[in-house]
């Protein structure tokens, strides 16, 4: 329990991940599913960035004096996550585009409905 509390970034990201996953799992509405997916992605990003963050250190942007390597946090995860966010966004966009297509063909974004239409 204590571990969870001390590593609250990780805890939070795992909770977020769970929320996202459950959303993805349980909702039959496609939009909600995509939102769930996004939440999951966000959780991962949070997790990743928190790995790079060290309490009390600054972002690796030199303002005035260079504080040495010890003064800054690791910039790599942040940079990576920027890429990650871009990828996630593009996938979201793609998924949404597909959803629109699906809506055009079926007239609904509820997966249950879609399955029933197909089943009959």
């Amino acid at each position: 329990m204590e571990k969870l509390l001390t590593n609250y970034y990780e805890t939070a990201s795992i909770i977020l991940f769970g929320v996202g996953f459950v959303t993805l799992l349980l909702h039959s509405n496609l939009i909600k599913k995509i939102i769930g997916m996004n939440i999951m992605d966000t959780a991962i990003f949070l997790f990743f960035i928190s790995k790079g963050y060290i309490y009390g250190k600054e972002a690796p942007i030199i303002r005035g004096v260079h504080k040495g390597i010890q003064g800054y946090i690791n910039p790599v995860p942040t940079a990576l996550m920027l890429t990650g966010i871009v990828v996630a966004v593009s996938i979201t966009a793609f998924a949404l585009a597909l959803t629109i297509k699906l809506y055009e063909k079926y007239g609904t974004v509820e997966l249950d409905e879609i399955m029933r239409i197909r089943g009959e």
């Binding site: 799992l25 349980l26 039959s28 249950d112 409905e113 399955m115 029933r116 089943g119 009959e120």
Partner: peptide, 10 residues
């Protein structure tokens, strides 16, 4: 299925 899907009673 956790949530009862309508398909089952189609």
């Amino acid at each position: 299925k956790i949530k009862k899907p309508n398909v089952l009673v189609r």
